[in-house]
Design a protein around this nucleic acid. Structure first.
Lengths: 143, 143
DNA sequence: TTGCAGATGCAATATAGTTGCAGAACAGGG
DNA sequence: CCCTGTTCTGCAACTATATTGCATCTGCAA
């Protein structure tokens, strides 16, 4: 928790165990995680759920973590710092999630349009695809 | 509630008052609405919240209504039947939401790539932009 | 090592959504 | 027009998710 501890301290926030673990857990996961999943991966002693929520919102507001909306009951989170921009595909059958990095994400043109048309200064976007994963496709065909 | 009543009955579901009103309320709104907002726009006698939830999931599963995820606590809903595909811009300052119809939404190429790369059969996508609306931009500048 | 701002645990509370059940509304058949 | 089975609705209980107040503890800078 070296780099992240540094980042936190530079921003004026103590690098507590909870924060370090959250960042580590998220960094190790290929998929965005829900608060509950994060908590379940905590080594003992597990912190209180409220601590996880509080730290997640702090990390999001500091820009170290990003939240992802996947039409689910709870939000999911992923590390934001690694510069990688990712999109998701979610299977509507089984809920399986895949991340991928677009070859080149050409929505910048659209963002410029938004600036001129609506006066909005767009800083982020999120793009999710929904459909059927290979396994569920096969099951459907069998029917 | 003529067309929608027809659509419902054709699918084998009675066109009850609740369903008709939900479709009307959603059709009249330029923005996707949360279940609570839908309920608040119901003329008296207001139905129970559970009825609204139940009808929303029915309408979604019938494809007459679509749900939109905007990084909020609750989902939002909009009519799906009008064939218009829309994206959103959300202001991170004040929460204001704007919808727009993309000139042409060219993500089909990306969807084809997903099919060949991951074997996913993509049927929908959702694209949201986040940033600062004109009003909030002005306020920020003043600081 | 000590002091203090800020973090944590715990419990209470809030918000969103779901479910079981009994009674009301409704559609179709006689 | 009425009976009958089906579906819908309201109500209340319940689950899951998230937030907050407060007393206590901890990280860290001097």
């Amino acid at each position: 928790m070296d780099r992240s501890a540094e980042a936190l301290r530079k921003l004026g926030y103590p690098a507590t165990r909870g924060r370090g673990e959250i960042l580590r857990i998220l960094a190790e996961s290929p998929l965005p995680l829900s608060p509950k999943e994060i908590l379940s991966r905590f080594p003992a002693p597990k912190p209180d759920a409220s601590t996880v929520y509080r730290n997640l919102s702090l990390l999001v507001s500091l820009g170290l973590v990003r939240s992802v909306a996947l039409h689910e009951r709870s939000r999911r989170y992923e590390v934001a710092g690694d510069g990688a921009h990712r999109h998701r595909v979610v299977c509507k059958g089984c809920g399986r999630i895949e991340s991928f990095q677009p070859r080149r994400c050409d929505l910048s043109r659209l963002e410029t349009d938004l600036r001129s048309a609506l006066g909005f200064d767009v800083t982020e976007h999120s793009l999710e695809f929904f459909g059927a994963c290979p396994d569920c496709l096969r099951t459907e065909e069998r029917r």
